[in-house]
Simulated assay, not measured.
Amino acid sequence: MYVIGLTGGIGAGKSEAARIFAELGVPVVDVDVISRRLTAAGQPLVARIGEAFGREYVTADGAMDRGKIRDRIFSSDADRRLLESILHPAIHTEAIKELESYNQAPYQILAIPLFFESNRYEGIVNRTLLIDCVEENQISRVVNRNGFTEKMVRSIIAAQASRSFRRALANDIIDNNGSIEELEQKVQQIHEKFIQACAVSE
C-alpha cells in the first residue's frame, strides 16, 4: 500500500487537487470528508461534542453545528484541542479502513490538511505532496468560496503550520497560484511521476 499524503493550508487548493487525482483514477481518502460524515445527523460523535461544548453546538436535526464550532475553536486553543481529541481518533480509524480497501491500487492519496501539525499519519504515508500558494490567494479564495471574513481566515491560517515549515518538510510541492488548468497540468505531471516510482519499487 503506497500512500501519498496530500496536504496544504486552507485555500491552497488541496481539495481541488484531490478532485483531479480522483478523475485520474487514483483512490482518494479525504479526512475532511470523513469528518463531515462522522459529524452528520445522528452520528455517535455528535452526542459527545454536545456533552463537551453544549447542546447549542448541535443542530435541530442532530448534526454538529460547524459554523458555531468553528467560531469557538478558532478563538480558543484549548477548545480546538478538545474537539480534536474527540474527532481525530475516530477519523484516523475510518481513514485506515478506507486505505486498506484500496490497497491494490498503484498508489493512493490521503488528503489531510493538518498532516505536518501532527504525527498521527506519519507511519502510514510514504511520501508527502504539498499544494501551496501565497497567503493573499489563500485569503481571497476562502473569502469568496466560504463567505468567511478576512479576520476569520487569518485566524485559521495562524492556527496551521507556516508555509515555510510545510515547504521544508514536503517531499513534493505544487505551487498553485494560477488557473485550474495549470493545476490540472501539474497534477497530471506528478501523477505520472508517482506511477513510475511505484512501478520501479515493485
Score class of each variant (00 low, 15 high):
Arg120Glu: 15
Gly62Thr: 03
Gln160Arg: 12
Cys198Phe: 03
Arg19Glu: 15
Asp65Glu: 00
Glu192Ser: 07
Asn137Ser: 05
Glu84Trp: 04
Ser101Leu: 01
Phe74Lys: 03
Cys133Arg: 02
Arg55Asn: 09
Ile195Pro: 02
Leu130His: 07
Ile112Gly: 04
Phe53Asn: 00
Gly67Trp: 03
Val46Asp: 03
Arg37Cys: 14
Asn171Cys: 13
Gln185Arg: 14
Ile4Asn: 08
Asp65Arg: 00
Lys193Met: 07
Arg19Tyr: 10
Ala105Asp: 01
Arg19Gly: 12
Ala22Ser: 15
Ile4Tyr: 06
Gly123Gln: 08
Pro89Gln: 00
Gly50Glu: 01
Thr93Met: 06
Arg19Thr: 14
Val200Ala: 10
Leu114Ser: 08
Phe148Gln: 02
Ile157Pro: 06
Ile10Met: 11
Lys193Arg: 10
Ala90Ser: 06
Gly67Ser: 04
Ser201Asp: 09
Glu135Gly: 05
Glu192Trp: 06
Asn177Ile: 03
Gly13Glu: 08
Asp77Met: 12
Gly5Ile: 07
Asn119Ala: 13
Ala168Leu: 13
His92Leu: 04
Ile174Gln: 10
Arg120Ile: 13
Ala159Asp: 09
Ser101Cys: 03
Ala111Glu: 14
Ser155Thr: 13
Ala170Asn: 08
Ile10Cys: 06
Val31Ala: 15
Arg66Cys: 05
Val187Phe: 00
Arg141Pro: 01
Arg120Ser: 14
Phe21Pro: 14
Ala170Lys: 08
Glu84Pro: 02
Phe115Asn: 09
Val26Leu: 09
Gly9Val: 05
Asn177Pro: 01
Lys186Tyr: 02
Tyr2Ala: 10
Lys97Gln: 05
Val3Ser: 07
His191Asn: 08
Ile73Gly: 04
Thr39Pro: 10
Gly123Asn: 08
Leu129Lys: 07
Arg37Ile: 15
Glu181Leu: 09
Ile195Phe: 05
Leu24Trp: 12
Gly5Ala: 08
Asn146His: 04
Ile190Phe: 06
Arg48Leu: 14
Lys14Gly: 07
Ile174His: 12
Glu94His: 00
Arg19Met: 13
Val125Glu: 12
Arg81Glu: 15
Ala158Leu: 13
Ala90Tyr: 05
Val3Ile: 14
Asp71Leu: 10
Leu129Arg: 09
Arg48Trp: 11
Asp61Ala: 03
Ser35Thr: 15
Phe165Arg: 13
Gly123Ile: 07
Gly54Asp: 01
Phe74Pro: 05
Phe116Arg: 05
Asp30Tyr: 11
Pro113Asp: 06
Gln104Tyr: 11
Tyr2Ser: 11
Val125Arg: 10
Gly13Asp: 09
Thr149Trp: 01
Ala47Tyr: 04
Val46Met: 06
Ala63Asn: 00
Val26Gln: 13
Ser201Tyr: 06
Leu83Thr: 01
Cys133Lys: 04
Val142Ile: 01
Glu98Trp: 02
Lys14His: 05
Gly5Pro: 10
Tyr121Met: 08
Ile10Pro: 08
His88Thr: 02
Tyr107Leu: 03
Ala47Ile: 05
Glu84Lys: 02
Asn144Gly: 10
Lys186Phe: 03
Ser35Met: 09
Glu181Met: 04
Ile34Tyr: 12
Tyr102Glu: 03
